[in-house]
Amino acid sequence: MINYLGTPTLKTERLTLRRLVLNDARSIFDNWLSDERVSDNRISPAHKVVSETKERVANIVNQYSRRDYCYWGIEISETGELIGEIDLYNFDNKTENCEVSYSLGYHWWNLGYGTEALKTVVEFGFSQMNIHKISAAHNTDNPASGKIMSKVGMVQEGTIRHMIRNAKNQYKDCAVYGLLQEDYLKKKIE
């Protein structure tokens, strides 16, 4: 059975994964949600005005009272700079599976932050929440995201053609990855 714990603060060597607050909206807008380079890898379009981001953050904050809501802002601990977001979602109580997604601001790509955040959330999901399987997907034209998934032990299970339609009305093929709790724990012990 999944042990729902909400969104506790998680720490890594360089990062603090924490709940978002309403005052984060400007940083979120500036650092990733208004950036076309980031939104090209997301389903939703880049935000044009900060009020869009404020509304989105308010919706996230309003859900933190739910135990089955796991949504973190990714913050550089040393500077307090908010650089991205990561969440566990789409929980299935029958299979005890869920999905993970993440976004990082363009200026923080290829610095290991995505891997560090994903590794921590996967560890939390398996060790604390007792999730059976965590899945993720990335657009095939964004192989860097697949490298992050592979670095934390996720395995590509296939490709789904035209899995999503982005904000530019383009269909995108997605590579689907997964990791089972038993495989994760086995590798951790070795």
Rank of each mutant, 00 (worst) to 15 (best):
V100A: 12
E85F: 00
G6D: 10
K187D: 09
N139G: 13
L33F: 04
L82E: 05
T140Q: 11
L22K: 13
W72V: 03
H162I: 00
G84V: 07
R42G: 10
L180R: 07
V152I: 13
L185W: 02
V155G: 02
V121R: 09
K94T: 10
I86G: 03
K186T: 05
R26M: 11
Y113D: 11
D24R: 07
T120A: 14
L180T: 08
K147D: 11
A25P: 02
D24E: 08
E78Q: 13
Y102D: 11
P45S: 14
E78N: 09
Q181G: 00
I148A: 00
T120P: 00
E75C: 14
E99Q: 09
D92L: 03
G146D: 12
N97V: 00
F126L: 13
Y184P: 00
I160C: 07
A175C: 10
D141Q: 09
T140N: 07
S127W: 03
V152D: 02
H47M: 07
W32D: 05
N41Y: 15
Y106A: 08
K168N: 15
G80V: 05
D30K: 11
D35E: 01
N23E: 15
M149Q: 10
Y4S: 10
K186L: 07
R14H: 11
L185E: 14
A46N: 08
E78D: 12
E190T: 02
K187A: 09
L82Y: 03
H162V: 03
V38W: 10
D24W: 05
V61K: 01
S127M: 15
N142Y: 08
K11W: 06
K186S: 10
Y102H: 05
F124S: 04
V152Y: 03
R66A: 14
S65I: 13
H132A: 09
N93E: 15
E52Y: 01
P45E: 15
I74V: 14
M163G: 09
K133V: 04
K48A: 08
K133A: 03
R42V: 14
N166V: 07
L179N: 00
L185I: 06
K119L: 07
R67I: 13
M163C: 12
M129F: 02
M163L: 15
Q181W: 00
R66W: 03
Y177I: 09
I134K: 00
K54R: 09
G146Q: 08
Q128N: 11
V176H: 10
E99S: 14
A58L: 01
N62D: 14
A137F: 05
